[in-house]
Every structure is written in C-alpha cells, then in structure tokens.
Simulated scan of single mutants.
Amino acid sequence: MQNTVLKFGGYGFLLGSGLFMLGLLLMKDIDVSVGEVIGYATMIVSLSLIFFGIKHFRDKVNSGTVSLGKAITIGVLISCFPAIGIGIADFIYTSFINPDFFKEYVEMMEARGHTEPIPRWSNGMMALVMFLTVMILGFIISLISALLLQRKN
C-alpha cells in the first residue's frame, strides 16, 4: 500500500502544484471567475489519480480485491500529496510572486459591487484553506472511487 500511495501521491503532487502554479501565473490576465474554474479543474485533475491509485492497488498489488475501508484509506492518503502541493504553490505565489494578490482581489470584488465583507487572510491562512479544500474534495473522490472499485473475495 505504501508504494502505491507514494507513487500516485507523488504524481498528484507534481501535477497539482505544477498546474496550480501555472493557473495562478496565467490568472493575472484573465477574469477571476475563470481562474476559479481553472483552480478547481486543477484540483480535480490532480485528485483523479486517487481512482488510478486504488485501481492499481486492487489489481496489481492485492490480487484483485480491495475493501471499502482500505480503498478510502488509500485515496485519502494519496489526496494528501496534491493538497500539500497546491498549498505550497499557493503560498509561494501569494508570498513571493504576487504578494499583493489579496489586496488586488479585494479591490476587484469591491469594484464589482460585492457588498459582503471579504475575508482578509494571510498568505499562510489561504494556503491552509487551499489544503483543506483539496482534502475535502479528495475525500469525496476517494469515497466515490472506493465504492466503484471495491471487490471482496
């Protein structure tokens, strides 16, 4: 199980952090709502490796069987890697590449007439929010994948 988690988690880390950073860099020239779609698409693509990791474990490592609990465990552990990668990419972007990101975001939202208070998070807090968002999505994808892929003797 450990090798499967490290292999597919590592791929998820590279895919998630790379695509997320690319999306953030491209977002300077596009609408924020399009950037959000790109961000969520990046999360889903990097978390899709959960399905393939569970399938690999079931078919190649565990003789064609995997329980629901074991599959969810594998999926959640794999999702930790893209979550960390996306959190790191977000922190690097908002701390070093574009430290005025949140200020620009708040100004843009206020210019669009957004009347509700907009949270003014620190860079570390936003990275944590990104990590938690990816983990929640990762759990959901793990559960769905586990339900689809579970096989008992």
Score class of each variant (00 low, 15 high):
residue 53 G to A: 06
residue 53 G to K: 05
residue 53 G to I: 12
residue 54 I to V: 13
residue 54 I to W: 01
residue 54 I to L: 04
residue 55 K to W: 13
residue 55 K to V: 03
residue 55 K to D: 13
residue 56 H to P: 06
residue 58 R to Y: 08
residue 59 D to R: 06
residue 59 D to L: 11
residue 60 K to H: 14
residue 61 V to E: 05
residue 63 S to T: 08
residue 63 S to Y: 07
residue 63 S to I: 12
residue 64 G to F: 12
residue 64 G to C: 09
residue 65 T to P: 06
residue 65 T to I: 02
residue 67 S to N: 03
residue 68 L to A: 09
residue 69 G to E: 11
residue 70 K to A: 14
residue 71 A to D: 13
residue 72 I to S: 08
residue 72 I to E: 04
residue 72 I to T: 09
residue 73 T to A: 12
residue 73 T to P: 00
residue 73 T to D: 02
residue 74 I to T: 00
residue 74 I to S: 02
residue 74 I to C: 04
residue 74 I to D: 04
residue 75 G to A: 00
residue 76 V to G: 02
residue 76 V to A: 07
residue 76 V to P: 05
residue 77 L to R: 03
residue 78 I to G: 04
residue 78 I to V: 03
residue 78 I to Y: 02
residue 78 I to K: 04
residue 79 S to M: 00
residue 79 S to T: 11
residue 79 S to E: 07
residue 80 C to P: 01
residue 80 C to W: 01
residue 80 C to F: 15
residue 80 C to Y: 11
residue 80 C to D: 03
residue 82 P to K: 05
residue 83 A to H: 01
residue 85 G to M: 05
residue 85 G to R: 05
residue 86 I to F: 07
residue 87 G to Y: 02
residue 89 A to G: 10
residue 89 A to L: 06
residue 89 A to Y: 08
residue 89 A to F: 08
residue 89 A to Q: 05
residue 90 D to N: 08
residue 90 D to K: 13
residue 91 F to Q: 12
residue 91 F to E: 02
residue 92 I to G: 04
residue 95 S to R: 13
residue 95 S to Y: 10
residue 95 S to L: 12
residue 95 S to H: 02
residue 98 N to P: 10
residue 99 P to N: 11
residue 99 P to Y: 12
residue 100 D to M: 11
residue 100 D to N: 15
residue 100 D to F: 14
residue 100 D to K: 14
residue 101 F to N: 07
residue 101 F to Y: 15
residue 102 F to I: 13
residue 102 F to S: 14
residue 102 F to L: 09
residue 102 F to P: 04
residue 103 K to H: 06
residue 104 E to D: 15
residue 104 E to S: 14
residue 106 V to P: 00
